[in-house]
Simulated assay, not measured.
Amino acid sequence: MAERRRRRGTETRRPSLLWLFAALLIPPLKGVATIRIRDGHKVPATGAFILSPNHMSNIDPVVMGYAVWHAGRAPRFLAKASLFRIPVVGSLLHGIGQIPVERGGAARGALPLSAAKRLIEEGQGVIVYPEGSLTRDPDLWPMRGKTGAARLALELGLPVVPAAHWGVQGLMPVNSTRFTLSPRPSIDVVFGDPVDLADLGRVGDRAALNEATDRIMAAITRLEEGLRGETAPPERWDPSKHGQSETGRF
């Protein structure tokens, strides 16, 4: 069943530029698709956290942003640092709390110290796609993950909340930027319990990062299986084994 929006927390009650974006984006989204959100109470009501969903369509950030807002928290994403240097665009991104990361060089994927401190001190959440790009799996299952979400979780000591959705491909097909409005698509979003990474320490080595990533991807896949009523392949799709290039900051 779809859930009522939780009336708690201050992020969605406090006036901000995000209110404007919510007012502009949510009504059209709800007008073109039926969105059902499950277990929104598993999104922490307060405090810093990382949300890690699957990624299959270019419309995913809008849908997940709505789901997080519905759960009572402000949606924040990692965005290319270069965007923040564009006049007006950069101000808007800062105004709605988005977080800059570098795309190349030694700082690739690094979260600025100021942003990390803000997440913790102000108890903010951030949405990180652990696959790093749209899934290449031909059946749209979560593919092999990158270590970005795991690295942030271990370095900052933050909980990772897995999430999954299914049906977004009916609104915007994979690798497309065009909407499909008929028949009216139905989208299901579900949140899971935090992934247990406590035994891996605060700052892990490569083995710890890989293990943490595997646990995060396994949690996302289990949620996806529940939404689809199917069992995922025993081995996650690895683009490098199929001659496919990968893009993404992590």
Rank of each mutant, 00 (worst) to 15 (best):
V88F: 14
E122K: 11
R151S: 10
G97F: 13
G123Q: 12
G204T: 00
L154K: 10
S114C: 02
D199S: 12
L152K: 12
S91Y: 13
D188Y: 02
G204W: 02
V161C: 05
T135Y: 09
L134D: 12
L113T: 07
R136D: 10
S176G: 00
P162H: 06
A153L: 11
A106C: 05
L181C: 08
F191H: 01
G90D: 05
P130H: 05
G125D: 11
G123Y: 11
P173A: 06
G148Q: 04
V160E: 06
L111Q: 02
V168K: 00
V203F: 05
E121N: 12
P130S: 03
V160A: 01
Q169W: 03
A164Q: 06
R136C: 12
G201W: 03
W141F: 04
V101R: 10
P194A: 09
V174W: 13
D205C: 03
P185T: 01
L181N: 09
G201R: 03
S176T: 13
Q169L: 00
A116Q: 05
T147Y: 00
L92V: 14
A164M: 08
P159F: 08
V195T: 07
A198S: 15
Q169R: 11
L154H: 10
P185S: 01
R103G: 14
G104K: 15
L119S: 02
V101Y: 11
E155K: 15
R144D: 02
Y129R: 04
P173R: 10
I99A: 13
V160R: 02
R103Y: 13
I86L: 14
E121R: 15
V160P: 01
D205Q: 09
S114M: 03
G95I: 07
D193I: 08
A163W: 08
L113M: 07
G204I: 03
V190T: 12
S176F: 02
P183L: 04
L93M: 12
R136Y: 05
H165Y: 00
A207I: 04
L154Q: 11
G123I: 05
L119V: 09
V203T: 12
G132T: 07
V101D: 09
G132R: 06
W166R: 00
R206I: 11
R184G: 02
D196R: 04
A153S: 14
H94P: 00
P162W: 05
Q98F: 12
L119Q: 07
S133C: 13
R144V: 03
V126G: 10
V203I: 11
V88R: 12
G145Y: 01
G105I: 13
I127V: 14
A207D: 15
P130E: 04
L156I: 06
P159H: 05
E102D: 15
I120L: 15
G95T: 07
A116I: 03
P162G: 06
T135C: 11
A149L: 07
G95E: 10
L171I: 03
R178W: 07
A115I: 01
A106Y: 14
R151C: 04
A115P: 00
L171H: 02
L111C: 02
L197Q: 01
A198K: 09
A106S: 14
D199Q: 09
H165C: 02
G132Y: 08
R178M: 11
H94R: 15
A164W: 08
V128R: 10
E121S: 13
P173I: 01
T147F: 00
D137I: 12
G123F: 08
A164F: 06
D139K: 14
S91Q: 15
G132P: 06
Q98D: 13
P159V: 06
I96K: 09
L200W: 01
A150T: 10
